[in-house]
Computed example of a mutant assay.
Amino acid sequence: MSVNEQIPDYELDEMVVVTAPEQLRALADPLRGTLLELLLERAATITEMARAVDRPKSTVDYHVNLLVEVGLARVVRTRRVRAIEERYFGRVARTIYVGALHRAEDKQVVASLNGLAQAAAEAAPANAADDLRCTLVHARIPIEEVRSFWAEVQEVARRFAQIPRSGDQVYGFVAGLYPTDAPTLPEGAGDSPG
């Protein structure tokens, strides 16, 4: 991929770890989440984002400024248009990772950030149109393997987000890794090595 095709079109960190209550509250708002997703595509002005989400510029300006205030977005460049300095905003990092939480109220906020629930709602029309690609697999594996596998999934998500933008349809990619109560087989007589 050439420099001209970099997604997004500005420099940003690979990951930021979020633990501050004000950052968690900012992420919990669906509009702010959508704005951050738009900025993963390219830097944008308030006017461009307002047009994309079909909301008033004043509303988008409020939410973007809040994201800047809590350190999740920033001005990445400016451009002079007539007598006005136009600001282009971008994310601070490609991946926003919610770190270890200690306060009960922070954990409640994070519970509302359930990407799987949002993906299920977004996927319903695709499911009805028989245009949903999905898989669900269970595996009994040690926690070290969970961490290693999740790092690979995050790399796939980064690659997905880096695909150059084109076409008329936006696609979602969701992945989840979670403990379950799925049944397991007991160790069998034929399970010993050798």
Results as ranks from 00 to 15, higher is better:
17 V>R: 08
81 V>W: 08
14 E>I: 04
159 R>P: 04
158 R>G: 06
138 H>N: 13
138 H>E: 12
14 E>D: 10
46 I>M: 12
42 R>H: 04
168 D>V: 13
133 R>C: 11
82 R>Q: 10
1 M>D: 07
159 R>N: 09
20 A>Y: 03
145 E>C: 04
193 P>E: 15
15 M>S: 13
106 D>Q: 10
80 R>H: 05
1 M>K: 03
189 A>P: 15
53 V>H: 10
129 A>Q: 12
179 P>D: 14
88 Y>R: 10
4 N>Q: 12
91 R>W: 00
178 Y>Q: 06
97 Y>G: 02
173 F>N: 07
36 L>G: 08
13 D>H: 12
40 L>M: 04
80 R>D: 05
74 R>F: 01
93 A>V: 03
58 S>A: 15
172 G>Y: 12
109 V>E: 02
17 V>Y: 04
104 A>G: 08
56 P>G: 01
164 P>S: 00
131 D>C: 12
123 A>K: 01
48 E>V: 04
120 A>W: 02
4 N>R: 07
185 L>N: 09
41 E>S: 09
123 A>L: 04
69 E>N: 14
25 R>P: 00
145 E>Y: 01
130 D>C: 03
194 G>N: 11
16 V>C: 05
73 A>H: 02
16 V>G: 02
56 P>Y: 02
127 N>R: 15
100 A>I: 12
3 V>M: 12
35 L>Q: 02
54 D>N: 13
31 L>G: 10
11 E>C: 10
85 E>G: 10
187 E>Y: 11
174 V>C: 14
